[in-house]
Design a protein around this nucleic acid. Structure first.
Lengths: 213, 213
DNA sequence: GAATTTGCACTGACTGGTCAGTTCAAAAAG
DNA sequence: CTTTTTGAACTGACCAGTCAGTGCAAATTC
């Protein structure tokens, strides 16, 4: 009658969790560089400092590792974006905050961002549904701010906020990756300033008075 | 020693050219769906209606075929964008025209666009330099219009047009692929209208807020 | 509290299939 | 005659996935 280790609880030692994370990190680096097909399980295991069998023990197979990796990564992104909007923020401030958070996140998780852009479009892969769903979640955070803007009677009431959200998402990721790739020494602020310039028309900045339509 | 003809191209027999194009088209479809690593040379040859040996006769190997394919594809995109701007167009019109051309191109060459997005960020591959260079060319067409806008004293004179060009590029590709993937039945005009909405602030449209179609 | 059991987490040599690339004789096209 | 394509057989490297075995800490028993 010792401790009843209920089936629901597993705070065991955290070892497994740590192993998984090391595998994720190794896989993100390698796959973002080489692509999924060109990256071998042996490589991933070696980089993670783990035996090959461990991959199969933890995930069941290469593609399952990859699916889990995507889920892990995109969830982190979505959570970061969600957390970036203070509840008190105005719609315009909220949008700006989300975009900035996106740029910062990508600056810090470059490999993951490359992966997201590269593999998100492979419609017939096993992981496609997962990636798509969580990606939509991330975009939803952006679209949410756009909805609030629209509700307040922003410059463009007829805007398709879903599509516009995905547009801004693509814009942020592309700009951020170009930044990391071509001019990594530039400060984040400059990147974000450019994005702010470009979305000024949407927000209807007081600086450049919106000409009402 | 075989003689090297001075010209880089050898259009002598149209047959070879036709074979190459069929191989390109087959390869684009298959690789965009499955990825490079998962697509076999046998598959490509079969889809193209050609013998396996023909691939090796024409390209020398799988990776060379792929590099040539990339070059072929990205060049077509860049050329299309360049051709989309009428010499007489105002900067604002020019920008709108380029964005529309991008959306249309992607609508018509979906597989190619997927492939381009997937491989554009794989910095250490053999074909990276090629893709990057021509991608820059494509973005340059957009940035060129932005430069003209800036010269005319558009709303945001301090804008980094290079970065902004890549932002718009990413926006167009992302929106267009989302469109093809999630709501392919929507007419192009709606997609383009959303983009026009979003760039209205850049162009500083005094008289042409795009009407809903 | 020592001895034993349980089972989780991990290991790494091994296997069986897959596929890029080779080769070449011969047919078709030009 | 030359260029291009065919088709099929062959090889050898490579790699996803397997599985019998190790180590270890907590739980259980005596």
């Amino acid at each position: 009658m010792g401790r009843m280790s209920a089936s629901t609880e597993r705070p065991r030692s955290g070892r497994r969790e740590a192993t998984r994370r090391r595998l994720f990190e190794a896989a993100v680096d390698l796959i973002s560089e080489q692509g999924y097909g060109a990256t071998t399980v042996d490589e991933i295991a070696e980089r993670a400092g783990v035996a090959k069998g461990t991959v199969y023990y933890n995930f069941g197979g290469k593609s399952e590792l990859y699916t889990a990796l995507m889920e892990w990564g995109v969830t982190r992104l979505a959570d970061t974006l969600k957390a970036a909007v203070p509840p008190s923020a105005s719609p315009g401030e909220g949008l700006t905050a989300v975009l900035r958070a996106g740029v910062v996140f990508i600056g810090e998780h470059e490999a993951l961002a490359r992966l997201l852009m590269a593999e998100a479009w492979r419609t017939n892969q096993a992981w496609y549904a997962t990636v798509r769903q969580i990606r939509t979640e991330a975009i939803g955070v952006i679209s949410g701010q756009l909805d609030r803007l629209a509700a307040e009677g922003a410059p463009h009431p007829g805007l398709d906020t879903g599509l516009a959200g995905s547009a801004l998402f693509g814009m942020v990721v592309t700009v951020a990756l170009d930044w990391r790739t071509l001019q990594p020494e530039r400060p984040v602020e400059e990147i974000h300033a450019t994005l702010a310039h470009m979305t000024a028309g949407l927000v209807g900045t007081p600086a450049s008075p919106p000409k009402n339509v």
